[in-house]
Nucleic acid binder design. Sequence first.
DNA 1: CGTGGACCTGACCC
DNA 2: CGGGTCAGGTCCA
Length: 394
Amino acid sequence: MASHVVLTSGAKLWRSLPCLTSELRLDLTLACGQSFRWRETAEGHWTGVMGGRVWTLTQTDDRLWYHVYTNQKKRRGRENRAEEQPEGVPNVEEEAPAVTDEQQSTMEAEMLREYFQLHVKMEDLCRHWGAADRHFKNTADVFTGVRMLRQDPTECLFSFICTSNNHISRIQGMVERLCQALGVPLCQLDQTPYHDFPTLSALADSSVEARLRDLGFGYRARYLQQSAKMILDTHGSQWIEGLRRVPYLEAREALRTLPGVGAKVADCVCLMSLDKPEAVPVDTHVWQIAKRDYKYAADNGQKSLTDKLYKDIGDFFRKLWGPYAGWGQSVLFCADLKKFQNLKEMGHVKQPKKEKETHKRCKKTKKDFDGNKIKTESEYRKKAKISVKKESTL
DNA sequence: CGTGGACCTGACCC
DNA sequence: CGGGTCAGGTCCA
């Protein structure tokens, strides 16, 4: 049976492209809640599905290494997988045209450059933002290499419908079950099956709501099915992709007409899949960041994130950072996640022992590796103050 | 325009 | 083990 590859055993299986870790950190970028499809399958090795293929990625100081697995061939006509493969689902990579390894590799490298948007120079953006924004600089100095992915719009939309009033560890499991239940199987590696993300038609089927409720999606089950159906019925299968070519606000409002898609989810989809780098998703984290680190609306005492407040906070960051404000937001968002707090405290001091412990933990818990957990709100504030103090002394 | 609740579920804490 | 709280929100009154 096929298994996950690692770089140390079999360099022949790998290809690479130039990419500095200052531009891309796989661990931060793939586990900060943009995409829910990547898992650390071996230390520093991330396996997931992108563009209908299964990849393992890893990196060295100046290169990004990748391996693409061969999809299992579907035997036509004699598969009893009717349950898993709704009709009308195209079989990815079927009858692959004859291409040389070289051509194949060139194409794969190009897919990666697009997925990670390597043409955008994060280092330049961060230097620019850091010059005018002290708090950003202090955070970005530790959280370098957090990039915005350019995800498939359908996957992004339906994944983020799952995020409402939810947490990352559960969302990951839900998205995995969603793909397993409704997506085309691609291959299996060490007992782990990999599936493509479901198509719109698979999601729109009337049986989907009940099915997903059984899989623990709660009230989101209806949103997923209804949104898919609404898109197909009133706009057509290419509609979401088409939103890449319309202005930000227009795309955002279009998305908001879908059930389960509010301001936050719409902005996530705009930023992470529709080429709208100015979109700033404002969630509880970003609201906290705005108040705590930017003294935004100091003690205005707002209870909830109203539409107006949402827009004002977004405008605030857009004014501060400019047209790529969404990319800036993602750096601070990532730095605010519980699971990455340990990175901050290590700061510039080298603590190899601690790092080892963290890695162990990642493997053991495998689903949810929290670094130093913050138990209560007050403890959270304490930490925030500490980090502010550190910053002021720098 | 702003507020208060309901909403599924399970991870995490005590 | 049982009970509360909370999570990258959205929708409705």
